[in-house]
Amino acid sequence: MDPSLNEKTGETLLEKKSVSRRDFLDYIIQGGLLATFMAMLLPALSYLWPVTRRGPAGGMMDVGLLDEIPIGGSKKVVVEGSVFLLVRTDDGVKAFSAICTHLGCVVAWDAAKKQIECPCHAGVFDLDGRVVSGPPPRPLPIHLANIVDGKIYIQV
């Protein structure tokens, strides 16, 4: 180790200490700057933390587990402010918009009759969303539903 170098650094350190006396003002300034920096950094970190438990994946939304619905049963889910009706059939899950095309009531699955019914004006849809009877002017919009690893994904 070069002694002269060591001496020099020691000298400047001493010099600094004697010249700039850290008074109260400096503490506030340094503390304030640190606080400002932290106040910028911490929200940024929290912003980066994912907020949605279920995120979109490839344009598909994760709406729950397959096991939550028994075969022949159904479930209503809320995705992006709209209600969807999932019906589990023997060979998978079918996803419908649960909003009746007549006056906008929320439709329900009738497991016994194996059809989708609107409680308001007795509109009836089949498992392809087609109008079986009643006043609905259009078929029920059907959404693509996939099952991956026991999770149901629908396209909204």
Binding site: V78, S82, G104, C105
Partner: peptide, 13 residues
């Protein structure tokens, strides 16, 4: 208001 919108659909029903 995602949840509220969905809740509104139910109320409309």
């Amino acid at each position: 208001v995602e949840e509220e919108t969905a809740s509104l659909e139910e109320a409309k029903s």
